[in-house]
Amino acid sequence: MTTTEIHPIELDDGIVLRAIAADDGPALAEAYARNREHLAPWEPLREPEFFTAAVHERGAAADVRRLREGTAIPLVLDDGDRIVGRVNLSDIVRGAFQNVHLGYWVDASLQGRGLATASVGIALHHARSAGLHRVQAGTLLHNTASQRVLEQNGFERFGTAPRYLWIAGEWQDHVLFQRLLED
């Protein structure tokens, strides 16, 4: 899959879901800095360097390469002036598994508008178009908003993973979800 195969899709009031671009680094740094407190409970602890343009310039370039190589489908939500969210299909595994991991977030100022639900739905379309069989996601046990997004997109719970990821400075349990794309 290449960036030319991912066409921008307007979600709501000029907000577009599109493939990440190599020059998105500074806008990503600004988006993460703007949402630092909003994202902190759901992500690993971030060093100050994480919020710099240089870190995200390298990250955007790597994401574009992974997209080109077919190992990830990195997407951003863009309101025309700034990046207001991310949707990542990462760690694509081929062979007998045909699996990908899903992660996403939406700007604090845009919560409750259905943008995450719509974006995840579009990401599922991209995963299906890439020939994948299964999309997996995990949420913290208390992240009911994210669980609703997944359930509204046809994901089913299939387990709980104790101490699954190092989030907000501690190993935290996660509810695991999957969506089989043939369903």
Rank of each mutant, 00 (worst) to 15 (best):
G14Q: 01
D173M: 03
Y32E: 08
D81V: 12
A168Y: 09
R46P: 01
V16N: 10
G25R: 08
F158D: 13
S129E: 15
V64F: 05
D183Y: 09
H126G: 07
A161L: 13
I9T: 15
I122D: 01
E43S: 11
D24Q: 12
A108D: 08
G114H: 00
A61Q: 06
H56K: 14
D13M: 01
H125T: 15
H38P: 02
W42E: 04
A33E: 05
R68V: 13
V64I: 09
L77G: 09
Y104I: 03
T4R: 12
G95K: 07
A60V: 10
L102Y: 05
W42A: 06
V120R: 09
S90V: 09
G95Y: 02
T117H: 10
E156H: 06
V149K: 03
E37F: 05
L124W: 07
G70P: 00
E151Q: 07
D12E: 09
A31V: 05
R179V: 10
V135K: 05
Q136M: 14
R82E: 08
N143T: 00
P44M: 05
R128A: 12
R58V: 10
L115Y: 03
L67Q: 04
V93W: 09
E47R: 11
V84Y: 03
I167D: 10
I122K: 02
F50M: 04
I92Q: 04
A96R: 14
L165G: 09
L141Y: 00
L180E: 12
A96I: 10
T4A: 15
R65A: 14
R134Y: 08
R86W: 01
A72D: 07
I9G: 06
V120E: 10
E49D: 12
G169S: 11
A168V: 07
I122M: 03
R36C: 04
L89C: 03
V76G: 03
R179P: 15
V55P: 09
T71K: 04
A40F: 02
F97I: 12
L132V: 04
R94N: 12
D78V: 04
A161I: 07
G112W: 04
L150V: 02
W105L: 10
D81R: 15
